[in-house]
């Protein structure tokens, strides 16, 4: 037992240099950029600068944006993202489970789903603006569509991948159809679904922001679009920074959820896990 703890400690201290190097690398990159702008190696007019981005961001935080306070804009985008994510995940999971476990449904609908998946869905944003107007509904719709397919394919694959032996075992232990579904199919599919949530959340943000770029009255995407129209690269970067912060925080929550729901899975010791 103590040997295991010792090993963990050693790997923990052994990896302490990683964040330091990561931070250093970021500072070097930003520094090089700032230097290139200051020495006029690249044009600040087109490329902006880290200092300019920070000034813009600080201005938004202190004095608000043209649209109103920054928090107001971020909250609009976050709402669109969360609603789109929630509805998209729910629909994707239900459709995936249904088609994964009911053979005739899969036979009928697989062709449709495959074809719809081949459509470049981001273009639907233009259609949704016409249908649902400049408000939140059109952005939510785009986020739902993007999230749905990602979650659906994972959930479908997971529902089909359930170990036949474990199902047989459950049946012989006395499980009826509902118990087999609840105690075997659902938890087995969950690990596939959770794997898709990370990507799905990124797509939900993409849907919301792209929807706002196409046409909106509020939101971070609108801020970015206006900065672009004013040829203000620093404003575009500042918008991106706020969006990224939202995404990173959300990813942290998903990681917590993953830990909680997948406690039963062996932890993989991969370098990717440290990132």
């Amino acid at each position: 037992m103590s040997a295991v703890t010792g090993q963990r400690l050693r790997t923990a201290t052994g990896r302490a240099w990683v964040p330091a190097v990561q931070l250093g690398l970021l500072l070097v990159l930003l520094g090089a950029w700032q230097l290139a702008v200051s020495t006029r190696s690249i044009s600040v007019f087109f490329f902006g600068s880290p200092a300019g981005t920070w000034r813009e961001l600080y201005g938004w935080i202190r004095h608000g944006t043209v649209q109103g306070s920054l928090w107001q804009q971020a909250w609009v985008t976050l709402q669109e993202t969360l609603i789109g994510f929630g509805v998209g995940v729910a629909c994707g999971v239900l459709a995936g489970l249904a088609l994964g476990r009911i053979t005739w449904l899969a036979r009928v609908f697989t062709l449709y789903v495959g074809t719809l998946n081949a459509v470049p869905r981001i273009v639907l944003g233009s259609v949704f603006v016409i249908w649902f107007g400049l408000g939140m509904a059109s952005k939510v719709a785009l986020a739902i569509v993007l999230v749905f397919f990602t979650v659906f394919f994972n959930s479908f694959q997971g529902a089909r991948d359930v170990d036949a032996n474990v199902i047989a075992n459950a049946r012989l232990l006395g499980a009826g159809r509902w118990s087999v579904f609840r105690h075997v199919v659902l938890p087995s599919t969950f690990s596939w679904i959770i794997a898709s949530l990370r990507v799905a959340f990124g797509l939900a943000i993409t849907g919301a922001v792209v929807g706002e770029l196409i046409g909106a009255t509020q939101g971070l995407g609108l801020l970015i679009a206006q900065s672009q129209a004013n040829i203000d690269p620093d404003g575009v970067y500042a918008g991106l920074v706020v969006t990224t912060v939202l995404a990173v925080v959300a990813e942290g929550f998903i990681t917590l959820l993953e830990r909680r729901l997948l406690r039963w899975k062996p932890r993989r010791q991969t370098p990717a896990a440290a990132v």
Partner: peptide
């Protein structure tokens, strides 16, 4: 029934 492979519920 006791199976050849693992059939216990991993979760």
């Amino acid at each position: 029934f006791v199976f050849q492979q693992d059939a216990v519920f991993p979760w």
